[in-house]
Design a protein around this nucleic acid. Structure first.
Lengths: 245, 245
DNA sequence: CGTTTTCGTTGATGACGGTCAACCTGTCGT
DNA sequence: ACGACAGGTTGACCGTCATCAACGAAAACG
């Protein structure tokens, strides 16, 4: 079996058709036949240990990456060194879209845990998208979905208060875990308070305090990185009715 | 002449090849021949008066819009009524990308002044992108550029202070005016203080105060909506060195 | 053309979240 | 298994920006 081979030789024959992430990834909505053709797209897979990067800002862009296992964060840095997390990505999600624009990556993608990603060479993807209409359509949707996601983060950063941001964040995570067949009520955070804060435009102390506060209110249970949602409805209510207006 | 005809009959024959926005719009980098084929893409143009919307959130998505004249803002609203401006768009820029994801628009696009947009039916665009490689490549770049733009807004909202946000905003506007052949030093804001504030995650009073402050410092001259940049370098410096660290 | 409304400026005050600091706990590396 | 260190919690204090308010000016309206 593959697992017996030394790591460098593990250029596993990738089979999208065998992958349980199909309905979250690029092949969504494609016929069996088309999925078969897509498999030629994915050349290799890359395994990463925690803290390793899939790509770094300013590196030339050549490929997109579909997360097969694990999770990542993407970060952008200003010249003065300030850094911000722009997103957290889970299995089935596509990384690297930022590089298409200029041919250079603008964010870095860093594994939050030991992870694995399918390498999708971009030139091949473009070529195949011209042939397979469904692939083209799906790819455009993925791009557009990222635009929409970022817009809702802008909304969060621009108009929400600390409590609302955290509530929105937890509910979003829950929903994504659920979509992957995991519990949407009990899960483990893969990122630190500081990373959460960076993503939400808050300091880590504020994240910590707010989580504690949620716990006191009976909204959630927190124990380190383990989260349990106890009252989803009230959490949701927090977002819609900040304090009274 | 066209101008004599009643508005409803003004389905002008559009000619991308004649449009001075070519190098800012979709046809970038295409051969003459390909540009000719692209022209069949743009069916009609739409004229809008100030405050009219090109499309509204929740409306079905069918077309993208290339701004031919004027300018727009895009806004997203939460259920509780809170609204945020997610972007300001100028000539040559593409509107409607948010709709691809779900087939429904998620933001509304509203004209900041009397404006005109070319209607690009999306189904046709996808079809043509499959045939013209350069068009496909350019379209993907436009999508990716929007992702990158939003990331830098996230950075701005997440880590920058009021002064830095305003400085970044003014410099960005200046650069875009310059790219269109207008002065990058003296220009007229098309949006209100409130709209600027909404975009930057600030209240209108803060925007007003900060602009006044910039003026006292000799960085800019403000007179209502007219802006003149007096010291670009110091403005730029504001962004990179927030206060000392 | 005058009136009304929208838009912008400036001031006084206060709240939310940032900052600094001390301490604790769990995890990672050797 | 142990120690060092990263990660997390909590408290006290403070700064930035929001809020409330009053006023002024420009633009939109009939």
């Amino acid at each position: 079996m593959d697992l017996q081979l030394p790591p460098t030789l593990r250029q596993l024959r990738v089979a999208c058709s065998q992958c349980n992430l199909m309905e979250l990834c690029l092949p969504v909505g494609l016929s069996e036949e088309d999925v078969a053709r897509i498999e030629e797209l994915v050349g290799t897979r890359r395994k990463l240990r925690r803290h390793q990067s899939l790509y770094e800002a300013r590196m030339p862009f050549q490929a997109l990456y579909a997360i097969r296992a694990g999770s990542f964060k993407t970060t952008i840095v200003l010249e003065d060194g300030r850094e911000q997390v722009t997103g957290f990505q889970m299995t089935g999600e596509l990384l690297g879209l930022d590089g298409i624009s200029t041919g250079q990556h603008v964010v870095s993608a860093i594994a939050l845990e030991d992870s694995e990603a399918c390498v999708i060479e971009y030139a091949r993807l473009e070529a195949l998208a011209r042939e397979i209409q469904g692939l083209q359509a799906q790819f455009h949707k993925v791009l557009s979905r990222e635009i929409v996601r970022e817009q809702s983060v802008m909304m969060l950063l621009g108009t929400m208060r600390a409590e609302e941001r955290l509530a929105a964040f937890l509910l979003n995570l829950a929903q994504r875990f659920a979509a992957r067949g995991f519990s949407g009520t009990e899960f483990r955070l893969r990122m630190t308070r500081e990373e959460i804060g960076s993503y939400l435009g808050l300091k880590l102390e504020t994240v910590s305090r707010t989580l504690s506060h949620f716990q006191e209110e009976g909204l959630i249970e927190v124990q380190h990185k383990n989260i349990r949602l106890r009252d989803r409805e009230r959490l949701r209510g927090l977002i819609q009715a900040p304090l009274s207006h």
